[in-house]
C-alpha cells in the first residue's frame, strides 16, 4: 500500500498557498465551505487510492487543536 506523503512535496509552496487563498476571495462562509468540499472530492478522485485517503483523513483529524 502506498504511504501518504507528509514531507514537503509541492514545487512552490507559497505559490500554491496564494492560489488557494485567491480561490476563496470574495466568497461567503457557506460558499467557502462548499468550495473546499468540492476541492476535497476532486483531489480524492485524483488520488484514487483509498489507503492513502484513509491516512489523509486520519492525519487531518489528528492535527485538529
Amino acid at each position: 500500500m502506498a504511504d501518504l506523503i507528509l514531507a514537503p512535496n509541492l514545487e512552490n509552496t507559497d505559490d500554491f498557498y496564494a492560489e488557494l487563498l485567491a480561490a476563496h476571495e470574495g466568497l461567503s462562509e457557506a460558499a467557502m465551505h462548499a468550495l473546499n468540499a468540492r476541492l476535497v472530492l476532486i483531489l480524492a478522485n485524483h488520488i484514487g487510492d483509498q489507503g492513502v485517503l484513509r491516512q489523509a483523513l486520519e492525519a487531518a483529524r489528528a492535527a485538529a487543536r
Binding site: H33, A34, A37, R38, V40, I42
Partner: peptide, 10 residues
C-alpha cells in the same frame, strides 16, 4: 449536506 451538495455541484 455539505458533501452531498458538493457532489451534486460537481
Amino acid at each position: 449536506a455539505l458533501f452531498r451538495d458538493a457532489v451534486l455541484d460537481l
